[in-house]
Design a protein around this nucleic acid. Structure first.
Lengths: 192, 192
DNA sequence: GACTCAATCTTGTCACTGACAAGATTCGCC
DNA sequence: GGCGAATCTTGTCAGTGACAAGATTGAGTC
């Protein structure tokens, strides 16, 4: 016997978010159930509402955590490599490694305005924009390219489309390895 | 008085799909309710089940219709212009004009295998691949580009990422006009 | 050590939903 | 006019999100 559960869980908020991320990765956010999360955490069906108010609040927390994780990763990559190409690789890797976060982050109808989320999102977007400034497509294409912000956007669109379509299962690639092969082929056309 | 509704609706399947598309465009597929659709169509709450079996069946029908619509549009564009650039424009325009279809189509977890859907999807993907063959990036970039399939993929990734991010409301663009401006700037970097 | 108050969790309830079963109505066809 | 299939209705059940009210616990204070 492990004894009865203590009335105060102690770390319920974090545990619920972790279970939510796992559940979303398994079944998609559309099948996410607060009561199922409560069961997984061995608390009553109304316990989640205390920490998140409602379903939207939970997804808001997931999105904020996602932006924080992505921001941290991209920030580190950019500081270490100063390469927007590597930022793009990190972006794709994040989407594959954290599908639940990625899904929720880019579906703002699922969550609501929140100071923490807004801060993390703006920080992450700023990193993407700053990274764009490091792009030197002119050297690659042999043409003058003054619009470095647009170059960064173009790279972002490419990466986002690539990984979104991969996860939609409409590409020939069905594994991260095949995804990388396909990404290299397509990127060579644009950036070589 | 408009009189009682006839027992047989006559065109219920089509009407339900239309209402579903409208409802998804308004509130997203996650809030789509079969009973709400039944109310909109003035039929009993179980009527939709006859035509679609369940919620998944309804979304399967929506996805199939979406692939059919997109395939028709892209086919016409390709035959008339023979330009993959115009196919890309049509792709983006479709996503903006038919957000409900677009959302469901690229979320295969929402629907199931279906002969009609598979046929329409494969046809549409074939058009995208055929269009890729018309790309002549070599002339644009001044480099030899034998991998025309990869060029088509790259263009697809760009368009898909562009419109997906636009609809995620994380871009500076907040209207189709601003989207076009942004798209031109980004595309100029890659394709000029 | 007891009092107090806020934080945290539980129990109970309600309307809504998807799925299913069984029955009613109507259409097409012979 | 009769029969079977197609189409729709009624009734029901378990599961869900939201809300209200109450129970338990922890932290600080005297």
């Amino acid at each position: 016997m492990t004894g009865v559960q203590p009335y105060h869980h102690g770390d319920l908020r974090r545990v619920l978010i972790d279970h939510a991320v796992a559940a979303i990765a398994e079944n998609g956010f559309e099948r996410l159930s607060l009561r199922d999360l409560a069961r997984r955490a061995n608390v009553s069906h109304a316990a989640p509402a205390y920490h998140f108010t409602d379903r939207t609040g939970l997804l808001t927390a997931v999105a904020a955590q996602g932006y924080r994780l992505l921001g941290d990763e991209l920030d580190e990559i950019l500081r270490e490599t100063n390469s927007f190409l590597e930022v793009g690789v990190g972006y794709v890797r994040f989407a594959v490694a954290h599908p639940a976060h990625f899904d929720v982050m880019f579906r703002p109808a699922l969550y609501r305005d929140d100071p923490d989320l807004a801060e993390q999102r703006d920080r992450t977007m700023a990193i993407l924009r700053a990274g764009a400034g490091t792009v030197d497509l002119a050297a690659a294409t042999g043409q003058s390219t003054k619009d470095s912000e647009a170059a960064g956007l173009a790279g972002w669109f490419f990466c986002h489309g690539l990984v979104t379509l991969y996860r939609s299962e409409v590409l020939a690639a069905n594994s991260p390895a095949e995804l990388e092969t396909l990404a290299r082929r397509a990127a060579n056309v644009l950036f070589s």
